[in-house]
Write a protein that binds this DNA or RNA. Structure first.
Ligand SMILES: Nc1nc2c(ncn2[C@H]2C[C@H](O)[C@@H](COP(=O)(O)OP(=O)(O)OP(=O)(O)O)O2)c(=O)[nH]1
Ligand SMILES: [Mg+2]
Ligand SMILES: [Mg+2]
Ligand SMILES: [Zn+2]
Length: 1237
DNA sequence: CAGTTTGTCCCGAAGTC
DNA sequence: ATCACGACTTCGGGACAAACTG
């Protein structure tokens, strides 16, 4: 080790450098001193400490490191030595000096370190150095705000890079334009972050201490399998994965931590107690633990339970892949192989990554729905994804369509080599689902041939064409012909095919071996490579139990005979083919799959960018329409508040490509209104004033204000002193200009909730259509964009908790296996998430811009592959392609239907109902307005049947909070939606006096506004709001920033708990609708009840309900007594009955269903009371009801026999009996009185 | 006429806003 | 009786009855 610094040029290191490197170093030679060399023997690492008297580019230092490392490890001696370079500036270099001499270099280094600063800190940026203070002059407030965020990074950069304690200051240089610069900076940053993420996935891995003792002492003994525990035991040692955890507060104040442990042979519940106030151990799902303790019979759970005495973490004991050169799996199924694959692609790719496999293929049966998750996992774990599919090939050469549809299909592996291949694959998926679907999505050979470019074909498994031919002992020429169709031939472990011994297709183990040998020899003969594949259906051997349970659930008799279709390591796989020549085996297992993997390019299933549709002139139309409406309501010139809001919004909407979406939404609303169906407002789009002015929402997001509706006057006045949360809560006022009563409006909602600050969110536009009109709205959208440019988003239904639970229970009980709750839960969670069927999104339409091709984003299919459906959906679900395409959400909703019916019945215009009506407001806290008592109707508020305000939970909230204004109702609406928003969160804060109803979090906008107020950077505040509203909680850096700005702990805590939260705009829209319906409930009770029962009461049971209020009360009690055992239907019926009781209390009569007068499905208001429809009788469906009405209209009904005979079988015996029971057929003869004489 | 297919009604489950 | 998000759509499957098929 040298003590005095020497010039690098004088050291042996320099001599060792290749000439190209030393040449590039030459410029710096006089500035680099080698201080000392530190050697870390145990890491085989040399650290060169350099002292620099001028900044040296990172690139140069990197070059130096690399070439020295290469040199030291060259030749046959691979020493494994690593080199690290640490630099500091020589002590006589001051900040001033450095900046004077090397400003350009410094700026360049800054750009490398913090790319987003490029925009503001270029070489010409003004700066000033005084001692260790460096002041930058940036162009704008925004720039400064942004730069300040990077201050810490910059200071630490000066420290690390130059060893200087620089203090950085920012000042505004008064001149430049700002907005756009800001925008670019963020993009730059984004790009950089993405780059880093994509480059170094392994750096994100979690650091967790292994073998740490969590409790008691270190455990020395060997763990026993959990399956061996059958009884109470004094002491056992076990090891496994934590599969569930729960912390409960006991009455005594002690805390109970219970968790489940599984080693996949069995599972066991564990219990640990902690004293009051002590922090329980932190144990998470997925942790691996070794536990020593006693097994006791727990009387509370009535199960054997492990009481840990000692506990430690252990490293996960998954088997390694130690091979030097590793295999690549080319045939793998995930949970997206319908009811067949049981492991997630994430876990598969994770394993491949842990094993050091460079690539892994995804080949689900007939579908590619695992691609999005695969792409994400590939990025995360640094494994190349080979996008593929196991298709169903059918021979169509020389067959007619009928034969084609019946012929058997063969499995075939199709891998996409590049983007051409991927697109072809998507086309094949589409065609096989849309045109050739018969039980399975089938691919005719001619179609495959036509799309073969960019695809690699493998011969698949025993259900592949090649193996079938061999099994059928077809002649050699034929077999050769078949084999030559493929790019590679597959052989699989014998275990995959052993089931054929049982079913008699193959007579001996030897024959199985011979088949694989046959394929190897074919390969040699034809020069087509052989690849050994697992046909993976589950990750680990033990995971086959999940597949067994699923197959048993589907009714397969042979469910228990699972082939070992697990993911094998290289050595495991080589062992499977030990009977082959060593060289052949190695080639098949390792060399060929690697070679194939190398042919495949790194691709993505779809682009990452956002693509918006374009329509000529859309932006101008939106702008004009908005301004016209604005002038109409607020006069010209516009009040400053309106003008400013519109400027900001229009720039953002048009700049971010949302003009077209606005235009379409506007047209849809307009068309629906013209067709007589009003449209309900919904979603975050109500935060946009442009949306208000274009008719997309009726929510007005401006601050509370008055405006004069007199077109000659148009006076307006904004009230920003905070006395009212909503315009409608303002006191009435007369226009000071013209004396008319002023209109009150404005709900004070920030636009950014919709689009963010810099378009950093891709929202949708949501509209509530009447259920009857929804399909027409969809059709109209297709008309506007063209059928080939809009598609219904598809959904993927999986086995979820309940179904899995049923399957597991059945499985275990049928086989009389003893099990405990923990093991049951573990098996259930292993079975969930497996695809079961596909469906259609409730209202999502994805828009493909004209200049794009849908196959750049997704294949297409029909919901549930129902060939008779005329709906086309995306093959990927909305979530996985969100952010790339614009989406319209045309949802069905009952509010518009209800309001329309109420308007029809009363002849009124619901929009004219005053939202400051005090009587209506009182309904939300008392029953007085209904003229009934709380006892009579069993509710202290009058909101039974008012949408989103009628449930027990919300009524309780209303009772507790007694809302006294419209804006108060809006807050209640926000607080009453989402888990852990009110109970266990806001409610506690109010009760214990920490906060009051005005500053708790009631809707997502609250969060953003408050955080900005507290001094957080606005875009960070926005991000926090988005994270909280989705129930994702806060990140560490969020909490840090919040604490820094003195956001109180209770607020942070509250954010962490929220699992979902409305935008204010949505709450306003829904309260508006609820308020109107409440008004009708008070003023037009018959119309209200008729509407409620027609629109929202599927379970209306006329037979029960017509028998009087007493029977109804009894029925309510009966259902209540069922408690948790009440079904969804029971609960629905209960609400209906409660409303019926209320109706009876208000002295409104209900008639019996009447064969001659009752409508098929609608309740009618008649002078003698409400008349229920035919379909309100349980057992009389809509079809039967409709055909009864039709019979009635086409000539008289002469007899009971007549009804059945003339109904085309639509009216069954059961229906007739139901009608008879209810007395509808009284006086009607059984048979036609037709005399034969 | 027996066996199979088709149509209705209902219900639970899942997904989504 | 506890606690408690509300509302809406679609799909599969069971029960049953009627219509069709050979
Ligand atoms: N009660 C309740 N309503 C929901 C839930 N999810 C969505 N909604 C309602 C409120 C939303 O504003 C509205 C539209 O949903 P979206 O998914 O389009 O979200 P939103 O418009 O709020 O935000 P966006 O800007 O589209 O990301 O539907 C939920 O989990 N519970
Ligand atoms: Mg939305
Ligand atoms: Mg939506
Ligand atoms: Zn006026």
């Amino acid at each position: 080790m040298s003590t005095a610094a020497v010039k690098l040029v004088a050291t042996p290191f320099y001599q060792e450098l290749p000439s190209d490197v030393s040449m590039r170093l030459d410029t710096f030679l006089n500035y680099i001193l080698l201080e000392r060399v530190e050697i870390v023997p145990e890491q085989r690492k040399w650290i060169l400490h350099l002292s620099l008297s001028c900044p040296v580019q990172e690139e140069i230092l990197g070059l130096l490191t690399e070439s020295l490392k290469k040199r030291l490890n060259s030749g046959n001696e691979n020493n494994g030595i690593t080199i690290e370079i640490k630099t500091k500036m020589s002590p006589d270099v001051t900040l001033e000096l450095l900046c004077q001499e090397h400003w350009l270099q410094i700026i360049q280094d800054i750009h490398e370190k913090v790319p987003s600063l490029k925009v503001w800190l270029n070489a010409s940026v003004k700066y000033e150095v005084v001692k260790n203070r460096l002041t930058f002059f940036v162009p704008s407030m925004m720039a400064m705000e942004y730069c300040q965020l990077k201050q810490d990074s910059l200071e630490s950069f000066f420290r690390q890079k130059y060893g200087l304690e620089a203090r950085i200051f920012w000042e505004i240089e008064e001149t430049a334009a700002e907005e756009e610069i800001y925008f670019d900076a963020e993009k730059e940053e984004q790009k950089y972050v993405e780059e880093i993420l994509s480059k170094k996935p392994e750096e994100k891995k979690e650091k967790k201490e292994q073998n740490a003792v969590l409790l008691g002492r270190e455990i020395k003994g060997t763990p026993a399998p959990l399956a061996d525990i059958h009884d109470e035991e004094k002491q056992v040692i076990v090891e496994g994965e934590v599969c569930e955890t729960e912390i409960r507060l006991l009455k005594s104040g002690r805390q109970l931590l219970s968790f489940g442990l599984t080693d996949k042979t069995n599972s066991i519940g564990c219990k640990l107690f902690f004293d009051e106030g002590k922090k329980p151990l932190e144990i998470n799902k997925g942790d691996w633990l070794r536990v020593k303790g006693s097994v006791q019979f727990d009387r509370y759970t009535t199960e054997l339970t492990l009481m840990p005495r000692d506990m430690m973490t252990v490293s996960k004991t998954s088997k390694p892949d130690l091979a030097e050169e590793k295999r690549v799996e080319l045939h793998l199924h995930t949970k997206h192989s319908e009811m067949d694959g049981v492991s997630s692609i994430q876990n598969m790719v994770k394993r491949a990554g842990e094993w050091g496999h460079t690539a892994i293929a995804v080949t689900d049966h007939g579908v590619v729905q695992a691609f999005p998750d695969a792409a994400e996992a590939g990025k995360k774990y640094g494994v190349k994804i080979i996008y593929g599919m196991e298709g169903y090939l059918v021979e169509d050469a020389g067959t007619n369509p009928v034969e084609l549809s019946r012929s058997r299909s063969f499995h075939i592996i199709i891998l996409a080599k590049d983007y051409t291949g991927l697109k072809n694959l998507y086309k094949l998926v589409t065609a096989s689902h849309m045109e050739y679907f018969y039980r399975r999505p089938r691919i005719p050979r001619s179609l495959l041939d036509a799309h073969r470019e960019g695809l690699i074909l493998g011969s698949a498994c025993e259900s592949g064409e090649l193996m079938r031919a061999i099994l059928q002992k077809k002649d050699a020429a034929e077999i050769k012909k078949i084999a030559s169709y493929y790019d590679y031939l597959e052989i699989q472990p014998l275990g995959n095919n052993r089931f054929m011994l049982k079913n008699g297709e193959v007579s001996s183990e030897q024959e199985l071996i011979d088949m694989n040998r046959h394929i190897v020899s074919l390969s040699k003969e034809l020069g087509i490579p052989v690849a050994a594949t697992c046909d993976v259906h589950f990750l680990d051997k033990e995971d086959e139990v999940y597949r067994r349970i699923l197959m048993a659930g589907k009714g397969f008799a042979d469910a228990d005979e699972q082939a070992p279709l697990y993911f094998r390591s290289t050595d495991e796989m080589l062992k499977e083919f030990a009977y082959l020549d060593e060289e052949d085996a190695y080639r098949a297992v390792v060399a060929t799959p690697r070679m194939i993997a190398e042919q495949v390019a790194e691709i993505k299933p779809f682009p990452d960018d956002f693509f918006e549709p374009k329509i000529e002139g859309a932006a101008d139309k939106i702008r004009d329409m908005t301004m016209t409406r604005a002038y109409e309501l607020y006069g010209n010139p516009l009040p400053e508040m309106v003008q400013k809001t519109l400027n900001k919004e229009l720039d953002s909407i048009i700049g971010n490509g949302f003009a077209v979406l606005y235009l379409i939404a506007h047209l849809l609303v307009k068309r629906s209104n013209e067709d007589g169906y009003l449209v309900g407002s919904r979603g975050s789009v109500g935060s946009s004033l442009v949306a208000t002015f274009t008719g997309i929402t009726e929510v007005n997001p401006l601050p509370p204000h008055y405006r004069c509706a007199n077109p000659e006057c148009l006076y307006s006045e904004f009230v920003t002193d905070g006395i009212a949360g909503a315009g409608v809560d303002l006191p009435d006022k007369i226009c000071p200009q013209c004396g008319r009563e002023l209109v009150k409006d404005g709900h004070d909602i920030p636009f950014e909730t919709f689009l963010g600050f810099k378009g950093d969110k891709v929202p949708d536009i949501d509209l509530n259509f009447s259920g009857e009109y929804q399909p027409r709205a969809m059709k109209y959208t297709e008309e506007i964009f063209g059928k080939e440019n809009v598609f219904r988003a598809g959904t993927i239904s999986t086995i979820a908790e309940k179904t899995a639970y049923g399957f597991v229970k059945n499985y275990l009980e049928e086989r009389k296996v003893k099990y405990n709750q923990t093991e049951l839960n573990r098996l259930v969670s292993g079975c969930t998430g497996v695809k079961r069927t596909t469906g259609q999104h409730p209202g999502g339409l994805m828009v493909i811009p004209k200049e794009c091709d849908v196959f750049d984003f997704t294949p297409l299919q029909r919901p549930a592959n129902d060939t008779s459906s005329d709906i086309i959906t995306t093959h990927f679900d909305y979530h996985s392609i969100s952010g790339r395409l614009t989406k319209l959400d045309l949802l069905g909703h009952d509010d518009p239907t209800s309001i329309k019916m109420l308007e029809d019945l009363t002849g009124l215009d619901a929009k004219k109902i005053r939202l400051d009506d005090t009587q209506t407001l009182s309904l939300f806290s008392s029953t007085d307005a209904l003229d009934v008592t709380a006892e009579e109707i069993g509710s202290t508020t009058g909101t039974l049947g008012i949408p989103e305000f009628g449930t027990k939970f919300v009524r309780q909230m209303l009772e507790d909070t007694k809302p006294s204004s419209f804006s108060h109702l809006v807050r209640i609406s926000g607080l009453s939606h989402g888990t852990n928003v009110w109970v266990g969160n806001a409610q506690d804060l109010v009760l214990n006096g920490t906060a009051d109803i005005s500053n708790i979090i009631a809707c997502r906008d609250d969060i953003m506004i408050y955080l900005i107020q507290m001094g957080l950077n606005s875009s960070h505040a926005f991000k926090i709001m988005e994270s909280v509203r989705k129930g994702k909680g806060l990140k560490d850096e969020d909490i840090e920033a919040m604490k820094k700005q003195n956001v109180p702990d209770w607020y942070i805590d509250s954010c962490q708990k929220i699992s979902y939260m409305f935008p204010k705009a949505h709450a306003v829209a829904y309260v508006t609708m609820a308020f109107r319906i409440a008004w009708f409930k008070i003023n037009y009770p018959e119309a209200f009840y008729a509407t409620f029962f027609t629109v929202r009461a599927d379970e209306f049971d006329a037979e029960l309900i017509c028998s009087g209020v007493k029977k109804c009360r009894e029925a309510i009690k009966e259902i209540a007594a069922k408690g948790n055992n009440a079904t969804a239907k029971d609960k629905n019926l209960q609400t209906i009955l409660e409303i019926v009781v209320e109706m009876y209390c208000r002295k409104i009569k209900l008639r019996k269903v009447n064969l001659w007068e009752s409508d098929a499905v609608r309740f009618q208001v008649t002078p003698d009371g409400l008349l229920p429809p035919l379909s309100s009788l349980q057992g009389v469906g809509e079809t039967a009801a409709a055909s009864l009405v039709k019979l009635r209209e086409h000539g008289t009904i002469k007899s009971v026999e007549d009804i059945q005979a003339r109904s085309n079988g639509k009216i069954s015996k059961t229906v007739i009996e139901t009608l008879q029971q209810h007395g509808c057929l009284e006086g009607l003869p059984d048979k036609n009185q037709l005399s034969l004489f």
